[in-house]
Simulated scan of single mutants.
Amino acid sequence: MSLCRFALRHTAVEALRGQTLVGDNVKNSDFRALDIAADGALRDNSDKPFILIYTDDATVGGMGHPTLWENGIVELVIESGIAAAMGSFDEETGETTFTGYGVPATDTGMEAALDIIDRQVAMTLHGDGEWALLFAHLHDGITKIERKRATLSDSGTRLAARQIRMWVDAKADPAWGAELAPAHYAKRFEAAVAGTDVEANVAALLGPADAPMSYEQVRARYGLSGDVASALVPAALYPGGAPVSEIRWLVE
């Protein structure tokens, strides 16, 4: 698992919760929460308009030093969906609307709702909220954006969905157990999730810092051959393994 990809998904979800028409119904790679009901309608656990965020393919190119810590260009996908079956019927007006959104549950209304959500996603992720700023710190820019739509009308069910695919130039993962400055994105993310249910995941992805390292660990961390690792950290100087800080100085 990549730490930066994990952080991209998590920060995007936290940034968007409560900031769009879907309210808190923003899901992190939770495909099981979405299902097709018996009547053919797309439903989720709360039967409300939703946003689903996940990371897809990633490509690394033009690498000067081959390590698997690089994330390269990562596809971050933000899907939103709304179905007529998610609306509420008002007996007085005879109209079906999405409760709390003021949008009629019609084809035009659903498309308008997706346009609003799309706009709200952009405004939020470019905003100055704590999670949005951390999300921006995880990448060096967006290289490409695609927007796709899907509609379904079957068995009387109307569904409208929108997919935003953005290719972000994701930061590289820190090397396992590396000493990191407080301003490093990984340390900022670690602090942001402290005390939450993902804190243990982040700790496992970072590894213990500044422990003495064997030559095999040096080689694995920096993607070096055994000969190069031995040349950088001579056994005679560090018979018990070299401190992380000194190895970083030698390699970088």
Rank of each mutant, 00 (worst) to 15 (best):
V228N: 04
S80I: 01
A181C: 03
I36T: 12
T143S: 13
D115N: 14
I116H: 06
I142P: 14
L68R: 12
A112G: 12
G100I: 02
A231F: 10
A112S: 12
E111Y: 08
A242W: 03
L76R: 00
Y185A: 10
G156I: 02
G81P: 09
G62Q: 08
A181R: 15
T20W: 08
A122W: 11
L138H: 02
A183R: 12
V103A: 11
N71M: 06
V233W: 15
G240Y: 05
R162Y: 09
Y215K: 10
G109E: 05
E179M: 14
G72T: 01
A7K: 09
F89N: 08
V22Q: 04
A186T: 04
A191P: 05
L125R: 05
G18N: 05
D169F: 01
R9H: 05
Y222I: 03
A7S: 11
S245P: 01
F6Y: 14
E70F: 06
M123E: 10
I53K: 03
R147Y: 11
I53Q: 06
Y215S: 10
W167N: 13
A37W: 09
N71A: 01
V13H: 03
M166Q: 11
T124P: 08
P49H: 01
S80M: 15
G223D: 04
E91I: 12
Q217R: 15
F189G: 08
W69V: 14
D197G: 07
K187P: 00
W69L: 14
G72E: 00
M110D: 09
L205Y: 03
A175N: 08
L232R: 13
P212M: 11
R17A: 02
K148W: 07
Q120E: 06
H10L: 14
E199P: 00
F89M: 09
M86R: 05
E190I: 02
E130V: 11
L224R: 07
E75S: 14
E252W: 08
V103C: 10
A231H: 07
L133Q: 15
G61S: 15
G18M: 07
D210S: 14
R119N: 06
R219P: 06
D44E: 06
P212L: 12
D173V: 02
P243Y: 00
Y101K: 15
T67C: 07
R221N: 14
T59I: 08
G241K: 07
I36D: 00
A204I: 02
W167T: 05
V251S: 01
T11A: 09
N45G: 13
I73F: 06
A113Q: 03
S46W: 09
M166N: 03
A194Y: 00
N25K: 06
D107H: 12
G127F: 09
V233I: 15
I164S: 06
P66R: 04
T93L: 08
L159E: 13
N201K: 09
C4N: 13
S88P: 03
K27V: 11
L205R: 08
V244H: 10
L34I: 13
P212V: 11
A191M: 04
L16N: 01
P239Y: 05
W249C: 10
V77Q: 10
H10E: 07
A172Y: 01
A113T: 02
M110Y: 03
L16A: 01
S153E: 13
I247L: 11
L34V: 12
V193D: 00
T106W: 03
P234H: 05
W131C: 12
A160F: 14
N201H: 09
